[in-house]
Simulated scan of single mutants.
Amino acid sequence: MKSEGEIRIYVACLAAYNNGYLHGQWIDASLGEETIWEGIREVLKTSPIPDAEEWAIHDHEGFEGLDISEYEGIESVCEKAAFIEEHWRLGAELAAHYGGDLEEAKTALNDHYAGQYSSLAEFAEELTEQTTQVPDSLQYYIDYERMGRDLEISDVLVIRLGYDELHVFWFH
């Protein structure tokens, strides 16, 4: 899946900021730690305040809602950027569900993902057809919408990305 924009951070020189200057630069966070560190060194080297040493992340874009703090470690920024670059909004929503824990989100994606569906009823119907032989005389009496709702209550996590785009994960 391709994103519309870059995954980047805005790094500001704190010495300049504390002296009333806005001095910083946008850095592509998906290019890795060394590229970010080079960008930070460049911001500090070109600061209007001599011998500037401190910096902070004052903005970020493209992380699909995943939180980046002002003093986030560069390794963490790169991990989040790589995760978002691979999974985009689904990854961000899943990570948010797990309180920002990327390892939990990765485990859910790798081990518990049941698939993408247009509705929970569609998921319940597919699950029923895969696990049970429903007699023809009973198939019109099954309420897949209620089955889907019951599954969501205790058995599955649902990430909704659009009107008819649901991603289903098993709780295990």
Rank of each mutant, 00 (worst) to 15 (best):
K2V: 05
K2M: 05
E4P: 15
G5Y: 03
R8G: 13
I9A: 11
V11D: 03
A12F: 14
L14S: 14
A15I: 00
A16L: 08
A16E: 08
N18D: 15
N19S: 10
G20C: 07
L22A: 07
L22K: 14
G24Q: 12
G24E: 14
G24H: 13
Q25N: 10
D28H: 04
A29R: 10
S30W: 00
L31H: 10
E33H: 12
E33D: 13
W37Q: 04
G39Q: 04
G39C: 03
G39I: 04
I40Y: 01
R41T: 07
R41Y: 12
L44A: 09
L44V: 02
K45Y: 12
T46Y: 05
P48W: 07
P48Q: 12
P48C: 08
P50V: 06
E53T: 14
E53G: 05
E54G: 03
E54P: 03
E54L: 10
W55G: 15
W55D: 07
W55A: 11
I57L: 07
H58Q: 13
H58R: 15
D59L: 13
H60Q: 06
E61R: 13
E61Q: 10
F63K: 06
F63N: 04
E64V: 02
G65P: 01
G65T: 02
D67I: 15
I68C: 02
I68H: 10
E70L: 05
E72C: 05
G73E: 00
E75D: 09
S76P: 04
S76T: 14
C78D: 01
C78S: 08
A81E: 06
A82N: 11
I84M: 03
L90E: 10
G91S: 02
E93A: 14
H97M: 12
G100L: 06
G100Q: 01
G100N: 06
E103D: 11
E104V: 11
K106V: 06
T107G: 01
A108V: 08
N110E: 13
D111P: 01
H112L: 04
Y113F: 15
A114K: 12
A114C: 08
A114L: 07
G115T: 03
S119P: 12
A121G: 11
E122R: 08
E122S: 09
E122K: 12
E125F: 02
E125W: 01
E125L: 02
E126W: 05
E126L: 11
T131N: 07
T132W: 05
T132C: 06
Q133L: 11
P135E: 03
L138H: 05
Y140V: 14
Y141D: 03
I142P: 01
I142R: 03
D143L: 06
E145A: 09
E145W: 00
R146E: 04
M147W: 03
G148E: 09
R149L: 05
D150K: 11
L151W: 10
L151G: 04
L151I: 07
E152D: 08
E152C: 02
I153V: 09
S154N: 06
D155W: 00
V156Q: 03
L157I: 15
R160A: 11
R160C: 10
L161C: 01
L161D: 04
L161E: 09
G162K: 04
G162M: 01
L166I: 01
L166P: 07
W170M: 07
F171L: 15
F171V: 14
H172G: 15
